[in-house]
């Protein structure tokens, strides 16, 4: 059991990297990767939200949707639950941990609409994961997102000092480097569990 949890982390963080292999959460991946510092904050917030939401959605799925034969409603119910969860977490942090809210606060509403969060919840259901496995898969996926966004931000910081060809300046070079990163991550796909 313990080995399989570690395998799940490696599988979700590297082999099936949420951004670079499954192309989920691309919007914030490209949008908030200008600086390593801000991208690390976003990545941490995502880590927090995805881990929490995969736990909550698993509970909702097994206790509400599965017994009532309403599994076809999972998409809409998960969206509801995740949006509300992020809102409550934001309020909680604002009151109880203002410093943490200051550093993560602006990213929390952004994450509500991050499809990676919903993607993890739906994938956990498809894989028929148990509670511990779901939370682990959520954590691993978010870890993969954190790794990918920090790496891209580090690359983008280097663009500032390099002579990028005129036609590639701005968004194009970011897309090119993201694509090259995705190709690099294909290297993990040979690993089968």
């Amino acid at each position: 059991m313990e080995t399989s949890l570690i395998l799940i982390i490696i599988a979700t963080a590297f082999v099936n990297n949420v951004v670079l292999s499954q192309f989920l959460g691309i919007c914030s991946f490209l949008g908030v990767s200008k600086q390593v510092k801000t991208s690390a904050s976003l990545g941490t917030a995502v880590l927090f939200v995805i881990t929490l939401s995969s736990a909550v959605t698993h509970i909702v799925y097994t206790l509400v949707l599965a017994p009532l034969n309403l599994t076809f409603l999972k998409t809409i119910v998960f969206i509801l639950v995740i949006a509300a969860l992020v809102q409550i977490v934001e309020m909680f942090l604002k009151k109880k941990a203002p410093q943490l809210h200051k550093s993560l606060g602006i990213y929390l509403p952004l994450i509500t609409t991050n499809c990676a969060v919903l993607g993890v919840a739906l994938k956990n259901v498809d894989m028929e994961y148990g509670f511990a496995q779901s939370v682990t898969a959520g954590f691993g996926t978010a870890l993969g997102f954190l790794i990918a966004i920090v790496l891209l931000a580090a690359i983008r910081e280097r663009f500032d000092d390099s002579d990028v060809p005129e036609a590639f300046k701005g968004a194009p070079i970011v897309f090119v480097s993201a694509a090259l990163m995705a190709i690099a991550f294909i290297g993990f796909s040979g690993i089968k569990f």
Binding site: L68, N69, L73, L80, I88, M91, F92
Partner: peptide, 27 residues
């Protein structure tokens, strides 16, 4: 019917939870 009722109940529950949270954690 079950689907509609479930989603409605969930929505009401979540809404109530949000209202409660916003009162409790009002800054």
């Amino acid at each position: 019917l079950i689907a509609v009722v479930t989603v409605t109940v969930l929505g009401i529950l979540i809404g109530t939870a949000l209202v409660a949270a916003s009162n409790k954690y009002h800054v």
